[in-house]
Design a protein around this nucleic acid. Sequence first.
DNA 1: TGTAATTCGATCAAAAATAATCATTATTAA
DNA 2: TTAATAATGATTATTTTTGATCGAATTACA
Lengths: 250, 250
Amino acid sequence: MTFQKRAQKILELLEAYGEVEIRQLAQKTGASEVTIRRDLSTMAANKLLYRTHGGAMKTSDLIKPVSFANKAEVNIKAKDAICKKAAEDIAEGDVIFIDCGSTAFRLCQFIKNKKIKVITNSLPVVNELQHSAVSINLIGGEVNPNRQAVHGSMAHEHIVRYRASKAFLGVDGITIEGLYAGSEHEASNTMAMASQSDCIYMLCDASKVGKTSYLKFNDLSMVNILVTNFSGPEIKEFESKGIAVYSVRL
Amino acid sequence: MTFQKRAQKILELLEAYGEVEIRQLAQKTGASEVTIRRDLSTMAANKLLYRTHGGAMKTSDLIKPVSFANKAEVNIKAKDAICKKAAEDIAEGDVIFIDCGSTAFRLCQFIKNKKIKVITNSLPVVNELQHSAVSINLIGGEVNPNRQAVHGSMAHEHIVRYRASKAFLGVDGITIEGLYAGSEHEASNTMAMASQSDCIYMLCDASKVGKTSYLKFNDLSMVNILVTNFSGPEIKEFESKGIAVYSVRL
DNA sequence: TGTAATTCGATCAAAAATAATCATTATTAA
DNA sequence: TTAATAATGATTATTTTTGATCGAATTACA
């Protein structure tokens, strides 16, 4: 059994149980404990797992290089349902913006096989769509490792050079009063994408609706379609402001 | 049995089993193990499969990060030695360009802990440096999934907006006559980075020196320093053209 | 806290696989 | 046909992988 095979097995077991012991692994792979120990060290060096005494643990998904692809993610079902609904509106030949953030990221799985062009500043989106039917335009600028996204004035300039039929955006909070972001950088990108698109989709799971955040960066007028699993009386108010609301259920 | 026939058979078996052993293949094809080994290396160079000890694995079966642990990459030692040498010249506070390509990628491991700014169009470089001391500026434009890099006119415009103290570039081939690239896109980016840098480092393992490729995109005048493990009489000629040559040994 | 039991890291040796070299055979070009 | 070129195979030297062993470090637990 080669190193690669063992590594695969180890990662599988890690995925299933969250942690593994060297004894187990040695038994399952037929290799000696010394070898397993060596495997674990090289894998740990590549940040594929955390080394513990006598075994290994799954790398915290926060630290993993590229992944919102994490099933422990909050509200994942809501986000998936929202994105599935939104993806129905995406047609062959479309040019779309995809915002950074964990919600918009979930759109990827539903558009992989569509022949469209995606303009994005989200590194996970790029990684996810890299070997798919989608052609990608990556927005350039300063990389923010925490958000796994590109920001800054160069990014802004880049965005306004393009034009898309649809933009799929996320925010930190949305109320009747307006849209809220966690940072100016994000707000700036979101605004720029909106200004360059014919139709603006706002993807918000229920936890975002009615919530405010530190920066109110715009009112609701720029939003055309709100896709959400929120279902309170406020929905009517959004609609009265001229926003089409796609309500999804889980 | 010709190479093509064998390659076909190998891919079939790979498709069926996910992995193959050299012994098997030698038996099934009637070729010697030496020949199979040669077949596998060329196929691995074309990314048709992953080379393992004693055999090969299907590319798609491999979990991506494991492939980084794969030492089957061609000329890896030369590339590492070259990059280690080149990295010695990088000082705190530097702003540097890093080209796409497998050679320049190897620079990452040696600069992770330096407080510098890296401007790059290479997605693997971004992933590698994302959670390090390095701050990253990602060049925007069209993503080429095969090269895992960003190209196009937008990329060019992005590059020329910045200025760096050093550029670490790769080429497909280098001779006394000039520099050769595999595509115009690459050449365009390489040229742009060179034009915006004070000092241009060319990173070339021995297989690149003396080799030409389909596009000669410039003469040698733009190169300041050639870092290579090549050690033939041609080195003197490079030096006579005013290029400083850093010779590395393995 | 101190002691026993694990686990780890380093070093070594054996086995397997690979790379390098050279001779031989097939293929192609002149 | 003959010479040049490329592909293959055999042989040898080198490298890689693996497992064993032993002192040091870490953990468990009495």
